[in-house]
């Protein structure tokens, strides 16, 4: 701040007063704990209640010790798959819905918009349980409905099978959040000026080819933002797994992702005691994964996207 070297001008205390509350709360509750966690990962519990500095030993343990590395890599790959499903299913559906919604003179657009967004405001607790009930073979809603359209034989207790549980959960999460990319793309599409579209029509570019050749390139920056938001959201997801499958991320850890792995490492489960230092190590790895993703986007992708000023 200008306090130390402010020449001639009086100290403007009000600037400090305006900034102080936000700065203090944000620094104390968010930034310091974040670095505190990074720092904790360099220590381990010594004899008695002391803390011993061990350098990067915790990370070596996490990556290579068979007691840890299996679970860690399992959670990491599962998380990657979770993210891939979102990118392949959620975002294309969101874009398609937005493209349809933004077509001119569409009636009831506001109604569709509001309705399709509703799942996104519900908590994971509700969403997880609703789908657990619907997919439950006990209740039989899903098998009955599939029977009605002749697909009865295809039903399986998806959430209970190791091979399909993770994909099912990812699709539930897609169902919940598809409204967010839809809304952001919709806004981006509406902001394309009419002159551009009219000029395209003059040149005979209409309908689907107008979407692919004119609109899609113009909304690429928004798609970039959605991708990075999806990435950050997926790599610290936890609630849905915890609600639908419990802290053990069953069956047999097949739905374990980094968030649930962090929770178990930190708090312990069944016979294993919780370990704050290993928990901090997992959190640090997650921090670097997210940081890598965000940096890749900011420096690798965003700067290359051409932005159009209207």
């Amino acid at each position: 701040m200008s306090r130390s070297r402010a020449t001639r001008r009086p100290i403007r205390w009000h600037i400090a007063v305006f900034l102080a509350p936000a700065l203090i709360v944000y620094t104390a509750i968010m930034i310091i704990p974040l670095f505190g966690t990074l720092n904790l990962s360099l220590f381990t519990r010594g004899q008695g209640n002391t803390r011993e500095f061990v350098g990067l030993a915790n990370f070596v343990t996490l990556f290579t010790d068979p007691r840890w590395s299996g679970a860690f890599w399992n959670a990491t790959w599962n998380n990657l798959w979770f993210f891939i499903i979102h990118m392949l299913v959620q975002n294309p559906i969101g874009i398609a819905l937005a493209a349809i919604l933004s077509s001119p003179r569409l009636r009831f657009a506001a109604f569709y918009r509001t309705a399709i967004f509703i799942p996104a405001i519900l908590s994971f607790v509700i969403v997880g349980f609703v789908w657990r009930l619907i997919l439950s073979p006990l209740w039989g809603v899903a098998p009955n409905m599939m029977d009605a359209i002749g697909l009865g034989n295809w039903f399986a207790p998806w959430l209970g099978q190791e091979s399909s549980a993770l994909t099912t959960l990812a699709l539930i999460s897609v169902w919940q959040f598809v409204g967010i990319p839809m809304m952001l793309i919709y806004a981006a599409l509406l902001s394309i000026p009419d002159e551009v579209l009219e000029a395209a029509e003059m040149d005979g570019i209409t309908g689907a080819s107008q979407f692919w050749k004119i609109k899609l390139p113009l909304i690429l920056p928004t798609i970039g933002i959605i991708s990075i938001l999806t990435f950050v959201g997926n790599f610290n997801a936890f609630d849905l797994i915890y609600v639908a499958q419990g802290a053990l991320a069953g069956p047999n850890y097949s739905t374990d992702i980094l968030g649930s792995f962090l929770f178990r490492t930190f708090f312990g489960f069944q016979l294993q005691l919780g370990d704050p230092h290993m928990g901090a190590t997992v959190a640090t790895v997650m921090f670097f994964i997210i940081l890598a993703g965000v940096s890749l986007y900011l420096f690798g992708i965003q700067t290359r996207l051409r932005r159009y000023q209207f």
Partner: peptide
């Protein structure tokens, strides 16, 4: 107000948009 470090302060406060607070849970 224009003051020294204005831009830096803005960037510092915006950091938290991308980095989830959950990662600091252990220390919190």
């Amino acid at each position: 107000y224009r003051f020294r470090g204005n831009l830096l302060m803005g960037l510092y406060l915006a950091l938290g948009i991308m980095i989830p607070i959950r990662l600091g849970t252990v220390a919190i």
